[in-house]
Design a protein around this nucleic acid. Structure first.
Length: 340
DNA sequence: GAACCGTGGGA
DNA sequence: TTCCCAAGGTT
């Protein structure tokens, strides 16, 4: 009986096919190093933070702009949160930007500007969780680690025909992912899985006809690849309502910083009444991760007291671009025909 | 463990 | 328009 040996050979084949496919179809991305560049965990870290829940096309411009502005972790550590949030505006999930700065300062203060190279140390840094810690080591340092993101979960669920909802199967999916990680070419393998998930093993209508590991895929064998992974359907997003006031005076605009709570924390908005459930006749609409905000934008010189919270300040109209403006605020400004 | 935390693109 | 979803982490 050679069952164990066969198992190892099959697992090895899987990784070998992923690495081969990756090298043949490798996309040029700004955070993918050339052979001559060497290891730069700052760049790997920056790209991985930006790529959390965010697509490659969206990230590319932000990534390059950040590197121009802050070429090293030492440069970034000297930035202000205001500067980092402004550079991050439009990317979303702004706690990433706030943690990015905290992390840069910790790496400089505690590690002399060199990112640690163990998962345990990386996990202690703000904004770095299980996926990112493993990804930094695997992709950036070619260290054997198991980076499990949505792509990897989907690929494992299909290859092994996991019928349980993805939320309840996470532990099993991570074990399966770990069993496939090769001892060599870990970086290429890890990036290859990401690319496979993005370009071939897509959420809908996976392109099994061009998949390098279709021979390993149990879901494809059973013809259920398009039904996996199982996702629980979520309820429709609730609505919240507010009235925002656009007030101009002497080429200045009245704005305010959001200091309460974590939503758009330390970002800029217009003076507004507290967000509630009473519908308004809205002219601007925006969707956050867990609710819609419907905004009635009014252009006025007199703002009701309930729309003022003490964080307001007048700001020059021609310097709005220096403020960290979330998309919600930009939509309201656009409605008021105020261009940045 | 479940809720919170953005945004833009594609179907 | 609406819904889905993407290289997750924190609380």
């Amino acid at each position: 009986m050679h069952r164990e040996a066969d198992y190892l050979r099959i697992m090895s084949n899987f990784a070998t096919k992923i690495v081969k496919w990756y090298t043949q179809h490798k996309r040029v991305l700004p955070w993918r190093f050339q052979e001559t560049e060497g290891v730069n965990l700052y760049k790997t870290w920056l790209s991985e933070i930006m790529l959390q829940q965010t697509t490659v096309p969206t990230v590319i411009n932000y990534y390059q702009a950040f590197l121009v502005k802050w070429p090293t972790v030492h440069h970034l550590a000297t930035a202000t949160e205001e500067e980092v949030l402004t550079a991050w505006q439009g990317l979303g999930y702004y706690s990433r930007a706030r943690n990015l700065l905290k992390c840069a300062r910790m790496v400089v203060a505690e590690f002399n500007g060199r990112f640690p190279t163990t998962e345990a140390q990386l996990l202690k840094l703000p904004g770095i969780g299980p996926y990112t810690a493993a990804a930094i080591l695997a992709i950036g340092n070619n260290t054997k680690a198991t980076a499990v993101d949505g792509n990897v979960e989907r690929i494992m669920a299909r290859v092994h025909a996991i019928n349980d909802p993805i939320q309840t199967a996470k532990k099993r999916l991570k074990e399966l992912a770990k069993s496939h990680v090769p001892h060599h070419h870990v970086s290429e393998y890890t990036q290859g899985l990401m690319d496979l998930g993005t370009m071939v093993c897509t959420p809908q209508n996976p392109k099994c006809d061009v998949c390098p590991v279709v021979a390993h895929c149990q879901a494809q064998k059973e013809g259920i690849e398009n039904q996996l992974p199982i996702r629980l359907t979520k309820a429709a997003l609730p609505e919240k309502f507010t009235i925002s006031y656009l007030s101009l005076q002497d080429d200045h605009i009245l704005v305010r910083r959001r200091t309460e709570g974590n939503l758009l924390k330390n970002m800029i908005e217009l003076p507004s009444v507290p967000w509630g459930t009473d519908p308004v006749a809205y002219n601007v609409s925006h969707t956050f991760s867990h609710f819609h905000i419907r905004i009635q934008c009014e252009q006025t010189a007199t703002i009701p007291a309930e729309a003022i919270n003490g964080e307001e300040f007048w700001h020059p109209l021609d310097k709005l671009h220096e403020l960290p403006l979330p998309t919600m605020t930009k939509k309201v400004l656009k409605f008021g025909k105020i261009h940045l």
